[in-house]
Nucleic acid binder design. Structure first.
Lengths: 108, 108
DNA sequence: CTAACGTACAACCAAATGGTTGTAGATGAG
DNA sequence: CTCATCTACAACCATTTGGTTGTACGTTAG
């Protein structure tokens, strides 16, 4: 999921299809690469649930799933939350018990 | 940067080193892979600025850079912001000018 | 109907990834 | 000093990635 957003072209595709959907070939002539390459990028995004395709005539409209983007962002929020949790816990330990440096947390 | 966080092991390393730093070998015996593999993951995170290493005796302590995590998260925030921007702009267009569907935006 | 367009997919390729083992250099413990 | 530990790094390997070209198929325009 984050992997799908780790590519600049793919992030740009998501950005471009946020407001209004675009056909794959329209996307293709924006980027300096072949149609097939763009098609693959879209496929990666689709597998990750970040965009959906809807056939309209002979075109295939790509639309970004904003909720999926939000969910991806949450993964990083989680890291920050963990961080805040650690700091809090450390403060607690310092407040109530300063002697023991080897509390057995963090074991696998 | 997002690429560095796209791997589950690396995200876990970041999580683990958020509160207190850990030596590379300590990290290594947490994961089911060789020391060298963990070392490589740490190197990737370091190149991305997500962790920093500090030598302490013969150990190398790995510490996560919470600000870098925040910066990575901001990249995804940007996508959502773009989305909100698009919606806003669409509303504006609908409000003031309904006739023209082919305004020349989004050109490369 | 025919030609052009949009898509799908296979085959191929170079480079990056994620892993391994092995070797060698620093550093601390005894 | 000597040995065990921690780290660094090279060489190698399989798989994935990001790109290409070529071919085939469905749909729309004229």
């Amino acid at each position: 999921m984050l992997h799908a957003l780790a590519d600049a072209t793919r992030r740009d595709i998501v950005r471009r299809c946020l407001g209004e959907a675009a056909s794959v070939s329209r996307l293709a002539d924006v980027y300096p690469m072949s149609f097939a390459a763009v098609q693959k990028h879209v496929a990666v995004l689709e597998r990750a649930g970040l965009v959906s395709k809807e056939r309209r005539g002979r075109e295939q409209l790509v639309r970004s799933e904003i909720d999926a983007v939000r969910r991806a962002r949450q993964a990083l929020d989680q890291l920050e939350a963990t961080w805040r949790g650690r700091i809090e816990r450390m403060s607690d330990l310092l407040a109530e018990d300063e002697g023991d440096g080897t509390h057995g947390r963090d074991q696998h």
